[in-house]
Amino acid sequence: MVSRNSLSGPLDPAPDAGYVDPPARKGFFTDTSVCIGCKACEVACKEWNDVPADGLNLLGMSFDNTGSLGADSWRHVAFIEQSRPIGEQSPPFQDLPTGPGMGTESQFLGMPGSTLPGASQDGRTDMRWLMASDVCKHCTHAACLDVCPTGSLFRTEFGTVVVQPDICNGCGYCVSACPYGVIDRRETDGRAWKCTLCYDRLKGDLEPACAKACPTDSIQYGDLDELRERADRRLEQLQGSGVTEARLYGHDENDGVGGDGAFFLLLDEPEVYGLPPDPVVTTRDLPDMWRHAGLAAAVMAASAVLAFIGARR
């Protein structure tokens, strides 16, 4: 049941946090079907927020050398190469000499392949390259916010979740709480850092830096209600044109985090993108846990009493 200060279920987080007459909830809809992997979002975010560079590491995960979201990466573009078609795309590699043994030497040397385990190694005809810009989800029920002992993490009037670096003591509770593995502590100063949905820009009536920079409008910013409607239409359009794997992620206010302030249109299972399939706010079960603990304590007490009574006889 949803009531004030609920830890689960549908909710409008800003009024619930105590704001009187806040603006409409703001968020991101990231339509990964039009992402061209340019990484302008990564750069724009770092430039605006003065996020440090996080190392020159060739990760070899296709063109993804960022790896994951973290204290020094608040936008992360994932690249997934798959031997599968998108929609009704014609297979680009049909009738080409692919597969092991193509060439002058035919020993198979057990090279780490780029196909998924279990996929056929005998030639490939299809190719698709998924690209997606990941970001903090600004959950309706944000575990990081719930567990923060200092009050550094707070809910803004826009419904977003922001860390105040001057209050954060680097305890790291938020890091283990986040079901998406987004927030992290910065090695050089110990504090927790993450996407602020450009809170300062929102206050100035500007859109976040990543949304502004994105050339194809893969990253869309606006009122969350309106974004959800747009996403529904886009999904219908895609599925209607044969892209049946298209799906929305984080849009459902009945999911384990009450729906995300930043939700996505994906072209495959969430796990393919490195996203958890069924994220649950880690504090959702707290009331139940306390009830169980209380019941256990009561049973313990009752048992102790019974033991004493029994012993006296």
């Binding site: 990484k39 990564e42 750069v43 770092k46 430039e47 560079a53 996080d54 190392g55 020159l56 590491n57 060739l58 063109f63 050398n65 960022t66």
Partner: peptide, 9 residues
């Protein structure tokens, strides 16, 4: 640095 780290080699 923001560009170098995107394609670092």
């Amino acid at each position: 640095e923001y560009l170098a780290e995107l394609q670092p080699a």
